[in-house]
Amino acid sequence: MHLVYPAVLAALLFCVGLYGVLARRNSVLVLMSVELMLNAVNLNLVAFDVWIRDSLHAGQALTLFTITIAAAEIGLGLAIVLMVFRTHGTADIDRLRTLVEQPAGDPDQAAAATPHGSDTQRKATAA
């Protein structure tokens, strides 16, 4: 098989994943898009491993490794999303803006605004 097929497929997968990460609102979908991107990379790894005929099959080994990490990561990610949903009542990523810098017209007042920001954050985690 020519290298161009898996390469193009991987690029497409990656772009779909990228679009999902950047454009979807639901954080579960964002996580899934991340998985798509990871898998695009995995595909590349396997394909290039075959193409260069690596005797150690480092690409395949790394792929297995990535899959394991991805499984752990998605578990962790979903747990976080669950917690966020429980505390905030939403999992929409563009509404989770606790880390926003308080809008301050005068740069000097930014210092005064920071404690307020961390205060709301603390309230959010407590709830």
Binding site: V30, I93, D94, L96, L99, V100, P107
Partner: peptide
């Protein structure tokens, strides 16, 4: 610093973009 702070809008997706 003031300019950079303006970019901190809290939306993770815009950071990624």
């Amino acid at each position: 610093g003031w300019a950079v702070r303006r970019a901190q809008n809290g939306n993770a997706q815009s950071y990624l973009s």
